[in-house]
Design a protein around this nucleic acid. Structure first.
Lengths: 192, 192
DNA sequence: ATTTTTTGACTGAACGTTCGGTCAAAATTA
DNA sequence: TAATTTTGACCGAACGTTCAGTCAAAAAAT
């Protein structure tokens, strides 16, 4: 029998696991997956490198856990129930700000995710998780462009998607100087 | 005296150099810089790996040559003199198509470049080349949004930049299904 | 005392880079 | 022209280093 209760044990392991995931995210995002070593991640987490292997079975599985967890967290954030009428200009603006907030709170994650999906082999690996998140995203924005007056709702939705992706990209490249508020107003003016 | 004339040698070396650069671009773009091996690049180029070191002094310098060359080529493409009036809606549309063409002709390069600038260390390394290209880009688009009627020309220019970045990103992720023509029309409708 | 967690020295495979040797082709010689 | 010399592009085995992953033993927890 175990000297500790299994629930206590589970909580401890959960916390260590998160500590390692946080460290891995930071290192992977800054050095890239192949440029990161297990040693770097262990040092960042403040533990010995052998310990990582009692929480994740390999470097590759560690990355997979990180991405799956990150996309699930993002989906959960997006599906928080909206607190007002939908399909209005105000709801559009609120959703837009929510997307930006989602991104800014998890910059490192989106930076890493962007790096990975640019490589075919990695994109393949995360296809399922990515599709799942895309569905969540579409449930937030999909209907907006359908009910809105537009010559070509599908093209407008695609373009808006590109705007979000490009905005994310540009915010990564110059997070401090970027005139975010003005650009958001411009997006609302053109798309809402 | 040299057994072969120096001009012949130079031409040979020039061709080999390009052959290696092409192979390196393909491998780097698909596997990422750290995920690529000199062996892979040599195999792709159809030469022995030792030969790479008589053309480029290291893996790192090979990458630097690749990026510098690619950005210079892109700048040259953009600075081809325009053949009509500027600042018109038609000129805007023509320039937009030129940007898309520039991207599609060098997809692998932009994919690699995007992956790299997401990593701080790499972004630092290519800062000078990137700034130089950005200036060329601004000379094509900068004045358009200034002379155009707009509540906030700077914000509109930034947003348009994000559109181009996001469009590039999305075209990388699904190059075949993407409804490019319809989205381009939508961009012209909203920005020209 | 017993069980679990943590450590870091260790291993072998894989990597970037080096280097002695080979060879086709150009220059030279006769 | 035919034989000889000279060149440097090219090859790939070998070297030192780095790294993911292992494991025996120490530390911690109760």
């Amino acid at each position: 029998m175990s000297p500790r209760t299994s629930t206590q044990l589970q909580a401890l392991r959960e916390e260590r696991s998160m500590q390692i995931l946080r460290a891995a995210l930071k290192v992977f995002a800054n050095q890239g997956y192949n440029g990161s070593t297990i040693e770097m991640i262990a040092r960042e987490a403040g533990v010995a490198k052998g310990l990582l292997y009692s929480y994740f079975e390999s470097k590759e599985k560690l990355l997979e856990s990180l991405i799956t967890y990150g996309l699930e967290k993002a989906s959960a954030f997006l599906t928080e129930p909206p607190d007002g009428p939908q399909h209005t200009k105000e709801a559009f603006a609120a959703n837009l700000r929510k997307m930006v907030q989602l991104f800014r709170e998890e910059q490192d994650f989106w930076r890493l995710y962007s790096m990975l999906i640019l490589q075919p082999k990695m994109a393949e690996k995360f296809k399922a998780d990515a599709m799942s998140f895309l569905e969540t995203y579409m449930s937030v924005y999909g209907s907006y462009f359908q009910q809105k007056q537009s010559k070509n709702p599908m093209a407008e939705a695609m373009l808006f998607g590109a705007v979000l992706d490009g905005l994310m990209f540009d915010l990564i490249l110059s997070p401090d100087e970027y005139p975010l508020e003005e650009v958001l107003d411009m997006i609302i003016e053109k798309f809402a």
